[in-house]
């Protein structure tokens, strides 16, 4: 079994054993660190993912039950019967989605199903033709591409987005760099945003949105272009986010995302005739 596969399985087993998002993220990063230094296989060091997850759960005193639902349990975003057309072409037809506080919901569906449109509607960038969208608290929207200033360096983005929500410049830079490290990226030495690779630019966008501390993050295909390790870190970061009682709606067509979310909503593609 490849370490990659082992770690994936380990995450699922931890979740099934009732280990909460933050402990889960910690266990995975620690295990990963050990493996990269030890230079030997995951199976040899830790046994089967099932056994090791059970040992971790027992050590944490959490064996055998699923994680408690996050406190609050209120609604973060409620979309009811929303429709949207462009020039008589229907993009969304009576779509309903609910994101509860402290939930990470994955929005899935084929290309062209209207995932991006739905996120733009929730973000308030466009208005639905019919139906209602209730947003409780604040939202932070990360588009599939763009949203960054190509001439500014990463740290300048941290300052820009962080100070907008009351952090001072040093705090904003520190917090931005911390989040970047969680994603396995050294942002301090990074070049201007316009020269970042696709995956790294996505990391910067996600961090910028997180710095705004919105109640709900709206992420449009956030890890397109990120490598496998970064994707795992991205999820660990989202789980920590969820642990704080915050929410996220993530559009994705990657099947790996589905097992990691609180729930999954599929929007059907509308066939164009």
């Amino acid at each position: 079994m490849k370490d990659e596969t082992w770690l994936e399985a380990f995450v699922h087993e931890l979740e099934a054993a009732g280990v909460g998002p933050e402990d889960r993220a910690g266990a995975v990063v620690e295990t990963e660190g050990f493996l990269s230094e030890a230079g030997s296989g995951a199976f040899e060091q830790f046994g089967s993912p099932q056994e090791y997850a059970a040992a971790v759960a027992t050590a944490l005193g959490q064996s055998g039950r699923r994680a408690d639902p996050p406190p609050g349990g209120g609604d973060a975003v409620v979309v009811s019967g929303v429709s949207k057309s462009y020039r008589r072409q229907v993009v969304l037809r009576e779509v309903s989605v609910r994101v509860g506080s402290g939930e990470v919901v994955v929005l899935t569906g084929p290309n062209g199903a209207g995932k991006s449109t739905l996120l733009r509607l929730i973000a308030g960038l466009e208005r639905p033709d019919a139906g209602s969208i209730d947003v409780h608290g604040t939202v932070g929207y990360v588009p599939q591409a763009g949203g960054l200033d190509p001439y500014l360096r990463a740290e300048a983005h941290f300052e820009l987005f962080g100070t907008a929500t009351g952090l001072d410049r040093d705090e904003a830079r520190r917090e931005g760099n911390r989040l970047a490290r969680e994603l396995g990226w050294d942002a301090g030495s990074a070049t201007v945003a316009g020269e970042l690779s696709g995956g790294t630019a996505q990391k910067l966008s996600v961090i910028a949105a997180m710095l705004g501390r919105p109640d709900t993050l709206l992420l449009d295909e956030p890890y397109e272009g990120m490598d496998a390790d970064s994707q795992r870190r991205f999820w660990a970061l989202l789980w920590a986010w969820q642990d704080e009682g915050r929410s996220a709606l993530v559009s994705s067509h990657s099947p790996g995302a589905l097992a990691k979310a609180t729930s999954v909503v599929e929007i059907e593609g509308l066939t164009v005739r």
Binding site: A38, F46, E51, A59, L60, G61
Partner: peptide, 15 residues
């Protein structure tokens, strides 16, 4: 000592 024995011990002591 394999990681599989080490980390559960550390987690328990932390807990």
């Amino acid at each position: 000592v394999p990681g599989g024995s080490l980390y559960p011990s550390l987690l328990r002591l932390e807990k």
